[in-house]
Computed example of a mutant assay.
Amino acid sequence: MKHHVTVGVDGSPESRAAARWGAREAALREVPLRLVHAVDWLISPSVPQPGREAAGRWADEALADAAQDVRRRHPGLDVSTRCLSGRPAAALAAEAADAGLLVLGSRGVGGLVGFLIGSVSLSTLVATETPVVLVHVSDAPEEAQTIRYGEIVLGVDIHEAADKVLTFAFEEAERRGCALRAIHGWKMPSMYQYAPFFDPENEREVGRSVTVMLDDMLMPWRHKFPSVSVTHEAFEGPTGAQLVHAAASADLVVVGRRLRRSPLGVHLGSVAHAVLHHAAAPVAVIAHD
């Protein structure tokens, strides 16, 4: 059975954008779309029954409105709704277990258009192994018309096994019939900072070597997805900043998720963190740890 696309809905403009983006993705994949809403305080005994009923009605209305909107835009799409009871992040992560993709809405910020990652989105990201796409309001297609897809930008770490990340990016590019641009950032070993005589040729040689490694890493997927036009860039500097810059003209940005554990809890790696907070395009986060 083909996996469906799940979208978290809460009645906000951000979740409406996520529902529209998720519907378009489900149509591309030719799979059903499932709209879900998690009601946290339905399970609390301290909430009076009238309050619970009102929350239930509001959730049903939010789901019905989102379903009506996407059905109007995609008449042939199989759309279902589900109201969940429990902590939103845990409920969404559990609901996503049998989904092919989870889509969440996120709020744009300031002049550098990007995301405000709320606690629910962040907690869901670290709790699920399902690919997650975060969408903000401006990413929602206005009409279900034929769309000319642009470029997918992929952040690659040549020092990590990233099969799931690469497969997701190439499949998305093949599905859309668009180009894929792979980006990797590198830096000189710290020992060169203390070298009394620095030869610029050493830096150029490292750059050439990294470019070859990136090309070698992509080669199996080039053969597996021959219809996908692929370019790659290896440059000196932080990968996150380059991905944010590239996202300005991208249809989708794809990054891997590596969890960092500290005494303060679990958090995302620096590249995913930078892209999620500042990229202008939708961002797909793929677990590969």
Rank of each mutant, 00 (worst) to 15 (best):
K224L: 15
A93Y: 01
R260P: 02
L166T: 06
R29K: 13
L116Q: 07
V210T: 01
A93C: 00
S123D: 13
G111I: 06
G110C: 04
F235K: 11
H278F: 04
D69H: 03
R73Y: 03
D98E: 11
T239Q: 08
M188F: 10
Y192H: 05
E30F: 11
W21D: 04
P189W: 05
V165L: 10
G114A: 05
R261D: 12
R57V: 12
H232D: 14
R16K: 08
Y194S: 14
F197N: 12
T130V: 08
D215Y: 07
D78C: 08
A195N: 04
A162H: 15
W58C: 15
D65T: 12
P238R: 11
T128I: 07
V113C: 06
A99E: 00
R107N: 01
V244I: 09
P75V: 10
V133I: 13
V31H: 07
P282A: 02
S138M: 14
D60G: 12
D215I: 02
V206F: 13
F168Y: 08
A169K: 05
E233S: 12
R24G: 14
P50Q: 09
H277V: 12
E205G: 01
S249N: 12
S270E: 13
V244W: 10
A19R: 06
S227N: 11
R222C: 05
A182I: 03
L134I: 02
L134R: 05
K187F: 14
L42C: 00
E160A: 13
V210M: 07
